[in-house]
Amino acid sequence: MESLLKKLVKAAKKGDQHAFEGLVELYKDRIYRLAFRMIGDRHEAEDLAQEAFVKAYMNLDKYDDTYAFSTWLYRIATNLCIDRLRKKKPDYSMDAPLSTSDGGTLYQQIPHSEEALETVVEKREERATLQEEISKLPEKYRTAIILKYIEDLSLEEMSAIMELPVPTVKTRIHRGRELLKKVYKKVMKSR
């Protein structure tokens, strides 16, 4: 497997589009899933995931074996998602850290409407809610939660993708978990 992957990457670097097509097939689900969980919209996620592959193709000559190809691809996709989220963000954001508090957000300070949560009963809605809640996390925590729990990556891989030291990655997972827990608790209560 490893050597097949290396062969594909090597051939793609030389301009072999069939080899690159193989790489797209291999990673499309992961990259699309990452984009969808980051952005929360299917069309936009598809656009972004495709953009990530095209960008990877254009920059293949810059890829070296320091990291796994998947790590490199995840990094491109993650950065594209974060760029997109920043562009979409209104001037006044609920996710923006408050200047007065230490890292908390406005979003955390507003209690969730209990009524809205009470209607959440069905599994599908619950899934959608969880996705929604993840989408509300500030980007840095959202990225950490998605890479860790949905993409199931190691701390080292995450560190390479997020371009942050491992302890910082850990902190972000903890913080993201804490933030998500608060809303999850309410979802559970409403059942």
Binding site: K28, D29, I31, Y32, R33, F36, R37, R42, E46, A49, E126, R127, L130, Q131, I134, I145, Y149, I150, E151, D152, L180, Y184
Partner: peptide, 11 residues
């Protein structure tokens, strides 16, 4: 529950 969100694939 979060891990269950992984079951989607590219269109």
């Amino acid at each position: 529950d979060v891990k269950k969100l992984a079951d989607i694939s590219a269109p």
